[in-house]
Design a protein around this nucleic acid. Structure first.
Length: 587
DNA sequence: GCCGTTTTCGGCCCGACTGTTTTCAGTCG
C-alpha cells in the first residue's frame, strides 16, 4: 500500500474508534475528513509533509492532523492511533461495518454485553441476550441476522461494469410505468467510480405509488428493506450480482435538486450546502432556497426555490461552473474560479489501439475485427496480439508474428474505410526488457508494452521495470500499467508520478484499459499522469465484439481523472495519430 | 479537530425511514 493509502486507513480507523468511544462527533468527522483528504491527494503525502504549510493548506488538514502525518512519515507510527487500538478491540470495527449497526448500538453491545467481534455478536443473537438491550426488538434482531447473511454473501463492492447494465435495466423498466416523468440513476454509479456500493435510482412521477410498487415488485427483488412515500430500498438479485437498490420519488419540479443530492458525493454536497449558507441560502434535495425564518424546512412552508428543476440552474445560482458528475468528489471543484473542463466523451474516440485476433486469444479474424471497428466509426484499428511469453494466450513467436504482420498488411489493403495497423501487445519482463528484439519491434506500426507476469513486485522494482519499458524508443503505449484486477488482484504499485514523468519525457502514452475488470490506469493515476504531462490511451483490449462496449467504463475513469480529448491519442484524427505513431519509427 | 463574507470562538448539511416508542433515537445516504 502507498503511504497515502496507509495513512488514510489509519485516520479512517481512528475516526471509527473515536466514534465507538463516544467522542465528540465533530472530532470524529474531522478524522474521517482528513482520511478522505489524504486519500484524494495526487502527490505522495510523505513529500508534501516536508513542507509544513503545504500540509495545512489542504482542506480538512489542520495543525494537529499535520503533526500526526509528520509523525507517521518520520516514525512509521501515529501514537494516538496506537493508544486507540489499545482501547478498542479490533473486531469491534467489523461489527460497526454490519449494515444497520451504527456507533451507538455497537458501543452499547460492547459495554453491556461484552461484544468485541462478529463472533460475539452472533453469540448474543443466538442466546437471545441481545433482546436485553434497549430499543432492541424482534424485528431489529431479524434485520441484524439478515445483514450478517448478506454481508457474508457479498462482502465486496460491485464493479462499475456489472452495476451499470443493471441500473440501466431498472431505469428502462421504471420509464414504462404510467405517470413517471423522469428517471435517472445517480450515486457513485453516475460519478463513474470503479466500484459501487448500491444503486440509487431517482424518479419524478405524478403517481409516486405506482413507481414505488413497480420498483419493490420488480423481478429479482429478494427483500424490501424500506418502503415509504418518498423512499424505498430493496435487496436485488441480478444474475450472480446481489445488490441493494434505493428508489427516491420526487416532484418533477425538484428533479434537478434531487439528482444533485443523490449523485453526491456526500462531501461535494456538504461543500455546496456550506456555500449556499454563505450566500444566504439553503440547499437540500428539494431545491436551493432563500434563507427564511421558520421551524419547518422551506419546501414545507411554500417557499419558492431559487433553483430546483435542473442541476445546471442550481450550480448557476450558486455562482459556479457546472460540475460533471465524475468530478464531484470535493477535490477543489467547489472553489471560486474553478472552470468546467471539456472532458473526453465516448463519441470522441475514433481509434482502438489494443485488440486481439484468433492468432492469439481473440475470437475474431483480422477482417472481422476491422469491420467491427469500422462499424463503430473508427478510422484506425491496431491488431496487437500477444507476444511469445504469454503462452496461455497463444502468444506469437517471431516467425508467427512476421507472418501475422503480412496478413495484417494484406487485410489493410482489402478492407476499405479503416486503417488496420500491425502491432503487438508485447510482454514486459520482470526486469523491464521486452519480449521481442528491437529489429522485430521496428517492423510494427504500434507497440503496446504490458506487464502480465511478476505482478507482485515491490514498488521500487516495479517502478524500475515500467520506467525501462516507457523509455524504450520503440514503445508507443504502456498497456494496463499495473496489471491489477478489481476486487481480485492488487497488481503493481509503481511510483506513478515517476512513470508519468518518464512517459511525458519519452512521448509514450499510458493506457487506460477500459475493460471493467481492469480500469487500469485507475482514476487517480490518470490525474497524476495528466499532471505530469503524459498522454493517455483509451483502449478496450478487444478480444470479442462486445469488448468494444467496454469503452464507456474507460471513458468514465478518464473523466474522473480529468482527461480531455487533446491528451487522449484515441480521439485524434487519423493523420495526427499515424504521424505520432511514425515518430517512434524515425519519421 | 477544522475553519473563517458571522474570522481565533463557536459553530459544524439535511432529510427519510424503521422500530420501538407514545414523541423519538439511530442509521443511512
Amino acid at each position: 500500500m502507498s503511504t497515502n493509502a496507509e495513512l488514510a486507513t489509519i485516520f479512517e480507523r481512528m475516526a471509527a474508534m473515536l466514534e465507538l468511544l463516544g467522542e465528540d462527533r465533530f472530532r470524529v468527522n474531522a478524522h474521517a475528513r482528513a482520511a478522505r483528504a489524504i486519500e484524494a491527494l495526487s502527490g505522495d503525502v510523505a513529500e508534501i509533509a516536508e513542507d509544513e504549510k503545504a500540509l495545512t493548506s489542504i482542506d480538512g488538514i489542520g495543525a494537529k492532523t499535520a503533526k500526526k502525518i509528520r509523525e507517521y512519515v518520520e516514525t512509521g507510527r501515529v501514537h494516538e492511533h496506537d493508544e486507540l487500538l489499545a482501547k478498542v478491540p479490533a473486531g469491534l470495527l467489523e461489527v460497526l461495518d454490519v449494515p444497520g449497526l451504527g456507533p451507538k448500538t455497537v458501543r452499547m453491545m460492547w459495554q453491556e454485553k461484552g461484544v468485541e467481534s462478529i463472533a460475539d455478536l452472533k453469540r448474543i443473537l443466538d442466546d437471545g441476550s441481545i433482546l436485553d438491550l434497549p430499543r432492541m426488538g424482534e424485528k431489529t434482531v431479524q434485520n441484524i441476522r439478515e445483514s450478517l447473511a448478506f454481508a457474508a454473501k457479498s462482502s465486496e463492492r460491485i464493479r462499475l461494469g456489472d452495476a451499470l447494465p443493471i441500473a440501466e435495466r431498472l431505469v428502462a423498466r421504471l420509464e414504462k410505468v404510467k405517470g413517471v416523468q423522469r428517471v435517472a440513476y445517480a450515486g457513485s454509479l453516475r460519478r463513474g467510480r470503479e466500484t459501487i456500493g448500491d444503486l440509487d435510482i431517482l424518479v419524478s412521477a405524478k403517481d409516486g405509488a405506482a413507481a414505488r410498487e413497480a420498483f419493490t415488485g420488480m423481478e429479482g427483488v429478494e427483500k424490501v428493506l424500506a418502503s415509504g412515500e418518498k423512499k424505498s430500498s430493496v435487496r436485488l438479485q441480478a444474475g450472480k450480482i446481489s445488490v441493494q437498490a434505493d428508489l427516491r420519488v420526487v416532484d418533477d419540479a425538484a428533479f434537478g435538486a434531487a439528482l444533485m443530492y443523490f449523485t453526491g458525493s456526500k462531501e461535494h454536497n456538504v461543500r455546496l450546502r456550506e456555500r449556499a449558507i454563505r450566500m444566504g441560502m439553503t440547499l437540500n434535495e428539494y431545491g436551493l432556497f432563500p434563507e427564511t425564518e421558520g421551524e419547518k424546512p422551506p419546501q414545507e412552508r411554500g417557499v419558492k426555490p431559487v433553483a430546483s428543476r435542473t442541476e445546471e440552474e442550481i450550480y448557476q445560482a450558486l455562482g459556479m461552473a457546472f460540475v460533471p458528475a465524475e468530478l464531484r468528489e470535493d477535490q477543489g471543484e467547489v472553489s471560486d474560479g474553478w472552470e468546467t473542463p471539456e472532458l473526453v466523451e465516448v463519441s470522441d474516440v475514433r481509434a482502438e489501439l489494443h485488440a486481439h485476433t484468433t492468432a492469439s486469444d481473440g475470437v475474431m479474424s483480422i477482417v472481422e475485427l476491422a469491420q467491427c471497428a469500422k462499424a463503430r466509426g473508427f478510422h484506425t484499428i491496431a491488431v496487437t496480439d500477444h507476444s511469445k511469453s504469454s503462452v496461455i494466450a497463444h502468444g506469437l513467436d517471431e516467425a508467427r508474428l512476421r507472418k501475422h504482420i503480412e496478413q495484417v498488411r494484406e487485410a489493410n489493403g482489402r478492407v476499405k474505410g479503416i486503417t488496420i495497423l500491425a502491432g503487438s501487445e508485447v510482454d514486459i519482463h520482470a526486469d523491464g526488457s521486452l519480449d521481442y528484439d528491437d529489429e522485430l519491434l521496428a517492423e510494427l506500426d504500434v507497440v503496446v508494452a504490458s506487464p502480465h507476469a511478476a505482478l507482485r513486485q515491490e514498488t521500487k522494482e516495479a517502478t524500475k521495470r515500467l520506467l525501462r519499458a516507457v523509455a524504450h524508443p520503440l514503445v508507443h503505449v504502456l498497456g494496463h500499467p499495473t496489471g491489477r484486477i478489481i476486487n481480485r488482484r492488487e497488481g503493481l504499485q509503481p511510483d506513478m508520478a515517476e512513470v508519468a514523468a518518464a512517459a511525458a519525457e519519452h512521448g509514450t502514452a499510458l493506457e487506460i484499459n477500459c475493460n471493467h475488470l481492469r480500469l487500469d490506469l485507475r482514476d487517480r493515476d490518470v490525474r497524476i499522469a495528466l499532471e505530469h504531462g503524459a498522454l493517455l490511451a483509451l483502449n478496450c483490449d478487444v478480444h470479442a465484439e462486445d469488448d468494444f462496449d467496454e469503452l464507456r467504463y474507460g471513458v468514465l475513469t478518464g473523466r474522473r481523472g480529468g482527461l480531455t480529448p487533446d491528451r487522449c491519442i484515441n480521439t485524434w484524427g487519423a493523420k495526427k495519430l499515424h504521424g505520432w505513431l511514425k515518430k517512434k519509427r524515425g519519421g
